[in-house]
C-alpha cells in the first residue's frame, strides 16, 4: 500500500518584479510534473543540485506549499486541497525536520515546550502530562531527559537536530520529511544523526522523504532515489540501481563529480587497520 503518492506535481512561482499593471508576471516553473510513490518503512531520497526543485517538491508533498496542479494522496486519500481541520489531520501524519536546527527551534522556548508543541497545536490529549511525554521523546533521540528545561542555545548543533527530530516524532507521524537534515552538521555528528534516523525508522516504520544534495549521505540512508534537475525527475529507482548503474546522463555527471577518497588509500587504510571490507 502506497503511503504517499504524488502525481504530476507542478509548482509555478511569479518572478518578482516582472508584473506590470495589466501584464501578468512571468512564471517560473520550479517543479515540473513530478510523480513519486513512498511506501511505509522506505526512505526516498530526492537529490539534485541547487535550484533543481527538490525542496519545493517535498514541501508540496507535505502540503506546506499549495500545488499549481497535480495531486498528493496520503493513504489513498486525496489531500491536495484539504483545509482547516482536515489539513490538521494531515499535519499529524506528515512531519518535517529542517536543515538548520537552531533557526527551526524557538530560542525562547524550553526543549520540553518545543518537542510537545505539535501535540498542543493538534489539541491532543497528552497522556501522563507534558513532562513525561517530553522525557520519553528525548530518550528516543538519545538526549538526556533531565535537560528538558534547557533552551536550544544550550545544545550543540547535533543535539539541536535531535530536538528537531524529537519534535517531529511527537505526533507519531507516518511520513517524515527531512529537508537537508544532516547537511549543516560536522561529519562525526552527521554519522550519529544518520544512525539515529535509521534506527527510529526501523522501530517506527515511518516513510521518509529525504532531501539532500550530498550523494554519499544518500547512499547511506536511502532505499530509493529520485534524481532531479530543472524541476523534473530525470531518473528514479532503487538506491543501488541508481548508484551502480545510472541511466541518465545527468545522474552520471552528478555521481562522477562527487569527490572520493582515493580507493587505493582507502584499501590500504582498511588493510593497515586489520579490517578488510568485503567487496560488494
Amino acid at each position: 500500500m502506497t503511503l504517499l503518492r504524488a502525481r504530476n506535481l507542478v509548482k509555478e512561482f511569479d518572478v518578482a518584479g516582472t508584473a506590470g499593471l495589466v501584464k501578468p508576471a512571468r512564471r517560473f516553473t520550479a517543479v515540473d510534473h513530478v510523480s513519486f510513490e513512498l511506501h511505509a518503512g522506505q526512505t526516498l531520497a530526492l537529490v539534485g543540485g541547487s535550484g533543481s526543485g527538490k525542496s519545493t517538491t517535498a514541501r508540496l508533498a507535505a502540503r506546506l506549499v499549495d500545488v499549481t496542479s497535480g495531486t498528493v494522496h496520503l493513504d489513498g486519500q486525496d489531500i491536495t486541497a484539504l483545509q482547516g481541520g482536515d489539513l490538521l489531520e494531515v499535519r499529524r501524519q506528515v512531519q518535517m525536520v529542517f536543515q538548520d536546527p537552531f533557526s527551526s527551534l524557538n530560542p525562547r522556548h524550553t526543549v520540553e515546550r518545543i518537542v510537545t508543541a505539535p501535540l498542543r497545536y493538534q489539541k491532543r490529549p497528552v497522556p501522563g502530562g507534558v513532562r513525561t511525554v517530553a522525557r520519553s521523546l528525548m530518550e528516543r533521540v538519545s538526549l538526556n531527559p533531565d535537560h528538558s528545561d534547557r533552551y536550544p542555545a544550550q545544545f550543540s548543533g547535533g543535539q539541536a537536530q535531535r530536538i528537531g527530530i524529537a519534535r517531529a516524532l511527537a505526533v507519531g507521524p507516518r511520513v517524515l520529511v527531512c529537508d537537508e537534515a544532516v547537511s549543516a552538521l560536522d561529519v562525526s555528528v552527521q554519522a550519529q544523526i544518520i544512525n539515529l534516523l535509521r534506527g527510529l525508522q526501523a522501530e517506527e516504520g515511518f516513510g521518509c522523504l529525504f532531501i539532500a544534495h550530498d550523494l554519499a549521505v544518500v547512499r547511506q540512508i536511502a532505499t530509493n532515489v529520485a534524481v532531479m534537475t530543472g524541476g523534473q525527475v530525470v531518473e528514479s529507482g532503487s538506491r543501488d540501481a541508481v548508484f551502480d548503474s545510472p541511466q541518465h546522463e545527468y545522474t552520471r555527471r552528478l555521481l562522477a563529480a562527487v569527490p572520493r577518497i582515493r580507493p587505493e588509500w582507502e584499501a590500504a587504510r582498511l588493510r593497515n587497520a586489520g579490517r578488510v571490507r568485503e567487496p560488494q
Binding site: S156, V187, A191, Q192, I194, R198, R219, Q220, D240
Partner: peptide, 26 residues
Amino acid sequence: TQALLDAVPRIDDSIGDLRPVPGGPA
C-alpha cells in the same frame, strides 16, 4: 583521524552503521 575517516559516508559503498567519532559533542 581514524574515527573521522570511519565517519565519512562513502558514495561507492553502503555500510552498516557509520561509526561516530567518540568524545565529541553529541
